[in-house]
Design a protein around this nucleic acid. Sequence first.
DNA 1: CTAGCCTGGGAAAGAGTTTTCCCACAGGTC
DNA 2: GACCTGTGGGAAAACTCTTTCCCAGGCTAG
Lengths: 343, 343
Amino acid sequence: MSSSYVTLEQVAQHAGVSLATASRVINGSTRQVSERLREKVNASAEELGYLANASAQTLARNSSSLVGLLVHDIADPYFSSIARGVTRHTEEQGLVTVLGTTHRSAQKESTLLATLRAHRARAIVLVGSRSTDEESNARLIREIEAFQQQGGRVACVSQPGLPADTVNPDNHAGAAELARHLIALGHRSFAILAGPTNLSTARERLDGFHSALSAAGIELEHHNIVHGDFTRDGGFESTRRLMRLGTDATCLFAVNDVMATGAMAALRDSGIGVPQELSVAGFDDIPTLRDLTPALTTVRLPLEQMGERAAQMALETDHEGENRTLNVQGEVLMRESTQRPAR
Amino acid sequence: MSSSYVTLEQVAQHAGVSLATASRVINGSTRQVSERLREKVNASAEELGYLANASAQTLARNSSSLVGLLVHDIADPYFSSIARGVTRHTEEQGLVTVLGTTHRSAQKESTLLATLRAHRARAIVLVGSRSTDEESNARLIREIEAFQQQGGRVACVSQPGLPADTVNPDNHAGAAELARHLIALGHRSFAILAGPTNLSTARERLDGFHSALSAAGIELEHHNIVHGDFTRDGGFESTRRLMRLGTDATCLFAVNDVMATGAMAALRDSGIGVPQELSVAGFDDIPTLRDLTPALTTVRLPLEQMGERAAQMALETDHEGENRTLNVQGEVLMRESTQRPAR
DNA sequence: CTAGCCTGGGAAAGAGTTTTCCCACAGGTC
DNA sequence: GACCTGTGGGAAAACTCTTTCCCAGGCTAG
């Protein structure tokens, strides 16, 4: 086996200085080292091909250069867009991103958090809607606090209510604004793909949409609200179910874009024309959306930027224990998938 | 600051055993420990909330649980699909995935490899087409060999020619097979979005397509080959350029799906009907493809599985220094975006 | 001229594990 | 009863750094 490692000790010896001096030169501590020795050490390091052992540094400093990034599914464009923003920031800072995918399992989330804690990660960015399940939330909070106890920082995207910095899209307002646009367009009867019942993001969007309808005196009938998975296939399924039961809605709102994408597929399969027979709107503005035909009306969130800002918040060293919240407003984008209803 | 760490020493003390014994119980070494002590140690660890310090373990064992994953752009569905496969395998094995995004910079790639080496990563999965630039390739190879010297393993996806295990799609054969299908459909004049000139994947697909045309006695005119970025926007741009210059092609082949997606957008903008006026085909079968209208003809690659297999190869401990190659065949999927040409 | 301070260097003490080496003891042989 | 073997436990070295503490020497101020 290997062990062809060059240690700092060897560099020091080669340069004829002490281990301490070599360390001071290589990592640039507060202490001064004379130019003469500095050059000698650097030359030796270069010549021997020295590469610091990151674990040893982590151990000695009790702080690593790891940043955790937890998402539900990296193949989902929503998460991969945010992930892109996160990595942009962390890599700019010379830090290392650890990717963990939870697949919506609270169990896996806990495990991953513990792992990151074991690695003395410097910060963690938690992406994805929080479940409303009391018990797993409590466990999540305990995990987070344990991590913070150890000097780690946490930032969340779309997970308000946790003891951490948060980048929080205003789901309620965005959905309400969208509803008002759709009402202005002439729609009076809506169906909603509402996602899982226990996801706060889904719930907030449903509520926001609903409240704007109520304000306009429009009823939202119970059978027009369909719950299902927060995925493309969930959207597909939910739409099928809705069609099977029959609906009088002229406009379909899916509480996120991947579900809307699934809905479009289901409608296409059923031969229902969008937007002629049914208008469709989503939420998020994932990048893949612009390639759908018709182009989908949605509420735009600056996903990549949200990831970037979350990473930034998590890595700012001041604001100790402050739990700041950065609110993000959505912007309604009316595109081809919605039009004035025929009826 | 923190330091509310529970160390193994404390666990040992609490359990009234030596540090060595505690270590043997917690990580399960070869050595036996009596049932009595084993239980005591476990109970103490549980009670104190012990969590092993991963850096210390890495240092002592000289081998970590980190697996590197290098992609060009995590927001690109091609890479995120593969990434999903990789994480599925690594997480199953209880390992930690480190995500690095290179954005096609050889410089960044080298830096990231060095970082992973510094962390004593156990293995690295390198995804993305290799550039044909001699110098950066040589540097990449040096970096890889240095990593292997230290006992790390490397597997590549779509990057043949490196001193590592490789999952290699048969680009040449896939493109040729696609060409034959399109010829059978009646096409005799083709345009190609060929991607960057220095990317081996792009080149192989171009060559494969070209050779099948030649075999059928079909000329591929020089002005019908357009080079550009390997991205959606690259495909968009390239298509614009092609249209501006004018083409007599009845079928457009984009050497990957994201470029094909951009091409579809450009054609839609220009009011060119697909497939009535122009047939379009891509390569990869990225998941977002099925939501395009018309559905895109392509060559299917099992992306997620490729990532999974690459991770698996990189983590298999036998086959030391063997540099195995796993060939993957593409499967031509004829969908709505291609039809018999009108002319 | 000496006390005191500053500067730059080195020795050594950590940081938290794993693992080697040694030892005590129980049990079995002759 | 002496000897051997195998088992399970502990002390301590090793892993590679960072950082504290100490010291020598040069300087300034009184």
